[in-house]
Design a protein around this nucleic acid. Structure first.
Length: 421
DNA sequence: TCTGGGGTCCTAGGACCC
DNA sequence: TCTGGGGTCCTAGGACCC
């Protein structure tokens, strides 16, 4: 039985999510902005056709937006997360083996199908996903994940939205004109290096000697080359592995000078990190607190600094993390600068039940804290996040990011359900 | 004026151990 | 006085992904 991987990728995912609840957007140029309304991170086909690039800063494309009446949205990540879950649930019905690769992509194992069945099965998946969730997807299939990714590129431009890349002659034809930079795992820097030694297309890499690649470059690239040859080096990873590090960070809407505001923001991020730790049942032993000024500003030197704060006992307690993060901030804060971004990172994670209780900790107190935090999470789950928070996170949060054009919480708030007239 | 956030993996080099 | 090889662990930094 030959392995067959399918890569299902949602088309212009964030934009498609907005369209599901606002059907009048169909056929119009639409973009979704990154947080802080910084740049375009999702574009409808109509917006792409206007020349709006992925990651284009908002202020550079204002003219195009105005002239063409492009509909612009701030990102609404809780909506996208919800829609993503619906798509993944639907995909599960098509194969017992599903790997959720990102918010808008998943691999399916379709090895049990006969080659001649693949295309119609793919078309069926597209149809059902669209019917059940409203989200359009493209599907690429190949004997390795990397080839499935290549096939997906083609599917995106294909009228049927599904492309099967399994025949040897098709693979050669496609790879011969497929730029290396588009290959999964090879970015700008690598493709530049590879072009120095004469490798420019995916076919070039697939033909190269594996040992030479391994010795001259590295193992990852050798794996990619093998996958392009049709030899799988990676399988479907069904289990959701827990994160090895957790970050919360955000740019400020306006730059921030005051230590007190930074303290609030750092506390806010520490609290978010603690919440995520509890969600995946982990504890952290090490925090990294970082702050920086605006790297794009010409005047004033760019300042960025970070500080590692070890915790005495591994923890997932909001109060413990806030205290540690604030201590870190004190060490790296430089008075008089305009800060643009801060964040907190949790490293050295471990499972919460792997941690022995230290003899220096009072187990009664620990239990009390756990109950308190559980209650906090429960209430926030019930009444919406940030219904209940630590005072040190700040009440007014004047340093908050800009979010001016967010769509309603269609799927999370009864009062914001879409109305049908 | 205005440029995202959250991850993973790999490698090199240093410290330390036997 | 001189001399070795192999291993682990940690960290920083680079590159990549969506």
């Amino acid at each position: 039985m030959n392995p067959i991987f399918a890569l299902i990728d949602c088309n212009s995912f964030f934009v498609s999510c907005e369209k599901v609840f606002q059907p009048h957007l169909e056929g119009q140029p639409v973009i979704v902005l990154s947080s802080n309304d910084g740049c375009a991170i999702a574009r409808s086909n109509e917006a792409k056709a206007l020349g709006i690039q992925m990651g284009a800063p908002l202020f550079k494309i204002q003219n195009i937006l105005r002239k063409n009446r492009v509909k612009v949205f701030s990102s609404n990540f809780s909506l996208y997360g919800d829609m993503s879950a619906r798509v993944m649930e639907t995909l599960k019905t098509f194969s017992p083996s599903l790997e959720v690769y990102s918010i808008d992509e998943a691999f399916l194992d379709l090895s049990s199908l006969r080659e001649e069945e693949l295309f119609s099965y793919g078309s069926q998946i597209r149809k059902i996903v669209k019917l059940w969730t409203g989200i359009p997807v493209s599907i690429g299939m190949g004997s390795t994940k990397t080839l499935a990714k290549v096939a997906n590129h083609i599917a995106k431009k294909h009228p049927f939205g599904c492309y099967v890349l399994t025949k040897l002659e098709d693979i050669e034809e496609v790879l011969r004109t497929f730029p290396l930079q588009e290959v999964w795992g090879i970015g700008r820097q690598w493709s530049k290096k590879l072009s120095y030694v004469g490798l420019r297309t995916a076919w070039d890499l697939a033909q190269a000697d594996i040992d030479w690649i391994r010795k001259t470059f590295n193992l990852s690239l050798a794996r990619t080359a093998l996958e392009l040859k049709g030899l799988p080096c990676s399988n479907i990873e069904g289990l959701v592995s827990s994160k090895k590090s957790i970050i919360s960070s955000r740019s400020f809407g306006k730059s921030v000078k005051s230590f007190e505001d930074l303290q609030e923001a750092i506390s806010f991020h520490a609290s978010k990190v603690a919440q995520k730790l509890r969600q995946q049942k982990s504890v952290t032993a090490l925090l990294n607190v970082f702050i920086r000024t605006n790297p794009f500003h010409a005047e004033g030197a760019y300042y960025t600094n970070s500080c590692i704060v070890p915790l005495i006992f591994p923890s997932q307690d909001t109060a413990v993390l806030i205290k540690a993060a604030r201590a870190g901030l004190e060490k790296i804060f430089n008075k008089g600068l305009d800060y643009k971004k801060v964040g907190v990172m949790a490293l050295s994670l471990a499972s919460e039940d792997q941690i022995p209780v230290s003899i220096f900790q009072n187990s009664k107190d620990l239990l009390k804290r756990q109950t308190l935090l559980k209650t906090l999470d429960k209430l926030n789950g019930q009444f919406g996040r940030d219904s209940l928070f630590f005072a040190s996170e700040g009440v007014h949060k004047t340093w908050c990011s800009k979010v001016s054009l967010k769509s309603p919480s269609f799927t999370q708030d009864w009062t914001q359900l879409p109305r049908v007239r």
